[in-house]
């Protein structure tokens, strides 16, 4: 099963939100999804306990550095997806997860600080590719973006693209529904309305579609 690792050593970049939105949208599209909560803060587990898990989703909690490779391997089969949510720190667990990834997503807010720290994950991926002698597809997704992009956002995006970094379009915008999903559990289709629900669903779905296309080689 293709393994998507959501990694950034920067805390608060939107990793868990990205993981939940991606997992729930893929499941909504009929894909079986196993989500691995590797963050000691247990964000995915808290979300899973808040409400009824959407069909097709399994959440495994407390995955440690010692378990990660074995756990990913145990769930590795075609037609399904594993989503790995990591803690926002520079840990060996991150590198081990990346070594088993079919796609690494690095969420970052459109700020210089997020981009600078997030770039450390990109450097780690580049070196792992060399050492493990395989390509590890990776992409950046901007999170918590505004409807009107700031100069900083545009500048960072241009800089990343110039360096050959794949930047997913659309970004995940700042939306009440995206933060609210951790209060209510479930997915964007089952939770009580929070702000512009249709806009949130369209955004998450379009993002998940872009990830799906990268997994299937359409991009």
């Amino acid at each position: 099963m293709p393994t998507i690792v959501v990694a950034s050593p920067k805390g608060g970049a939107g990793k868990s939100t990205t993981a939940v939105l991606l997992g729930t949208e893929l499941a909504n599209g009929g894909v079986s999804v196993t989500m691995l909560d590797c963050d000691p803060n247990g964000s995915l587990t808290l979300w899973a306990e808040r409400g009824e898990l959407p069909d097709g989703i399994t959440v495994l909690s407390d995955i440690s550095e010692a378990d990660i490779v074995r756990t990913i391997k145990a769930h590795d089969s075609d037609g399904k997806v594993v989503v790995v949510d990591l803690e926002g720190v520079a840990s060996r667990l991150v590198s081990r997860a990346i070594s088993q990834a079919d796609l690494v997503l690095t969420p970052m807010r459109a700020t210089t600080l997020d981009a600078t720290i997030g770039a450390r994950a990109l450097q780690l991926i580049a070196e792992e590719e060399e050492a493990l002698d395989r390509t590890i597809p990776h992409a950046v997704v901007f999170t918590m973006t505004k409807a009107i992009q700031s100069k900083q956002h545009k500048g960072i995006a241009v800089s990343l693209k110039e360096q050959g970094v794949d930047v997913i379009d659309p970004p995940l915008m700042e939306r009440a529904a995206f933060s609210g999903i951790f209060a209510f559990g479930g997915d964007l289709h089952s939770m009580p309305p929070q702000g512009n629900m249709q806009g949130a669903r369209d955004n998450a779905r379009a993002f998940a579609m872009q990830v799906y296309k990268r997994l299937t080689g359409e991009i």
Binding site: E65, A90, R92, V94, S95, I98, S99, L124, A131
Partner: peptide, 13 residues
């Protein structure tokens, strides 16, 4: 993988 991680400051936590 661990070796590379350590080089980049991704250490055992």
């Amino acid at each position: 993988s661990d070796e590379i991680a350590e080089k980049h400051g991704f250490v055992e936590r």
